[in-house]
Nucleic acid binder design. Structure first.
Lengths: 191, 191, 191, 191
DNA sequence: GATGAATGAGCGTTCATTCAT
DNA sequence: CATGAATGAACGCTCATTCAT
């Protein structure tokens, strides 16, 4: 097993276990066991559990971004771009339920809150397609003139909720329903 | 101190501490300390921590229900009823941030998932105003003909997201913004 | 077993094990085992291992002081007072070898250095009979006009060394030899 | 890098780190890092940590001996020889604080005790100048007729104590004070 | 020979739960 | 009934040592 294989095994095991059982339900020893490595080995790659958790998150973001940006045309109409991004995101969640559940765990934790705080208050523009989309939409009077945070809530709120319910088996999202759901989100934010 | 006083103190202390520090940041001994009772006493009223957590949730629901139902007229127009319920709920969250944060903790945990599973699959009709409202709205063709779960997502998703962001200080929800946000939710679900 | 019995058992076990095996050779679990209590019980009485170690030291000092001060007359001649204190101290060490070895461990550790630093630089006069004795001796020109620290070294250096060697069995200190050793110390510091 | 260079680097690194942080504050990996070798390499030269620690000590002794023997005339008067040896030793400690602190760590540990036991009980005569000096002094009735171990205590006790206090900054030993201190030691052992 | 990734026993510490008082 | 001292399994993490390369 090569070096990066081992690191990858740890990452995979951690993702799986944390997604399934939450941060506190996934002890380092269990992660090590699932990854097929010794308990101490994890610490060669990640200084401590917090850092493992954070790197896992960064990892995930970097995997998702290219996927939802595939085929995304900056010059298409606003609505179409919105539907593209949301559909791609929701599809990603549905097809990668472990990733989704990990993201959920992360967001609902001090880690995630801190990341959001930095993002929102830090004015780190440019690094976020949705932000650009919303700001342009507001400027063009296509989207309601709401604070960015509220627009986020109106879109990601339903998106995440519906993804979770699908993964939990409370609803079955086929292509038709996905389209409907996302159009409803658009109805919520469009002027 | 009467029996029920003691129980109430425990419930109050647990709510506060869990809302502030999460389930794992609120040891039973700390809850006992805050409640002014012995550690063992909690176990006279609640078999174990899980059961305390669950009862706390039931408790909370029972407190919220009457509040949002106050002034709720079953005979008013659909839209008005929707706005009333959502506004009351969002206001409650904003005015009772501890309650809200507890609910959040609860929802994002195995406990919450189980409760939802029972609710949704268990067909427990009647006990939920929103359900009745949505079903009536769908029947009257005022609300989109979506599965109930999706309608929930479209409404509670943004509502909870925006309440959290307000409590975290990412946005300041005044009456005007609350109204706007809830109208946007209505835009999302209305036909 | 009463409360204080338990605390005392922990103190006794910790003293024994640390005296025998050093701080690092005496894990908390081993201390608990020897004390006949659960591992967690120690933490009811001592916040952590460092605090246990420090309290143990304070404890020891407070036990030694009264013993060496027994029969100590402030008005007797300098030499006699010196002999009294040193003899009492050395005897205490010989009769309480665990106490002695614990003190040694403590002194040769960051803990002990810090304590000494505070004592020496902190000018906390009065709390130390030896200090008073030496200062008076210097003032009366009975004792060499050396810095206090040097006088300490000339007295405690041999005293501790000889106590250690006795306990390790390298020498057998009878009353005669004790007297000789301490007189030699006096020869070292007297004018 | 030749073989012996590597070994020397390991010895140097171990000495530095153990002197600064103690045996338990100097993990093998840290020693390897400081020495610029792989962690496993240490084990080619030293079977395990204990053996490294012991060899380090032997090393140190072999370095100190020639230094204190430089200019030492076996035929000079007893007192002069005593002053020479002690002064050279104390100076060495002051000029090589890392060596001194290592020695201290070593002496106050099971390793050091074992070494002393072998030395004292093993009757290994000849290998120790101080021993020869004291035995001759006792025979000539220049030095008190005490057991060797006691004479050691009366000399090395103060010497080590005062060296430690200097290195810790509790006292500043200049040439004058060094001379005074050692004369006081002489007063302690001389007839 | 040299390496450093891998190991896992063992550490200090926490906390849900029990039970003698 | 109520207490809170006691428990011990389980946690995150360290580090002496091994061994495939």
């Amino acid at each position: 097993m090569a070096n990066m294989d081992k690191r990858d095994e740890i990452v995979r095991a951690a993702l799986e276990l944390i997604a399934e059982h939450g941060f506190h339900g996934a002890p380092m020893s269990m992660i090590a066991g699932r990854a097929g490595v010794g308990a101490g080995t994890i610490y060669r790659y990640f200084e401590n559990k917090d850092i493992l958790i954070n790197e896992l998150y960064m990892n995930l973001e970097n995997r998702i971004y290219p996927v939802i940006l595939e085929g995304y045309g900056e010059c298409k109409p606003m609505r179409e771009r919105f539907l593209h991004l949301c559909t791609a995101l929701l599809r990603y969640f549905i097809e990668n339920p472990l990733d989704f559940r990990y993201l959920e765990q992360f967001h609902n934790s001090p880690y995630g809150v801190e990341i959001r705080r930095e993002r929102i208050l830090g004015e780190k523009e440019g690094c976020d397609v949705f932000r650009k989309l919303f700001e342009e939409g507001v400027a063009n009077q296509v989207i309601k003139d709401f604070p960015l945070v509220l627009l986020y809530a109106l879109v990601f709120g339903p998106l995440l909720a519906v993804a979770r319910d699908h993964i939990l088996g409370f609803i079955v999202l086929d292509d038709h329903l996905i389209a409907k759901a996302i159009e409803a989100c658009w109805d919520g934010v469009k002027r």
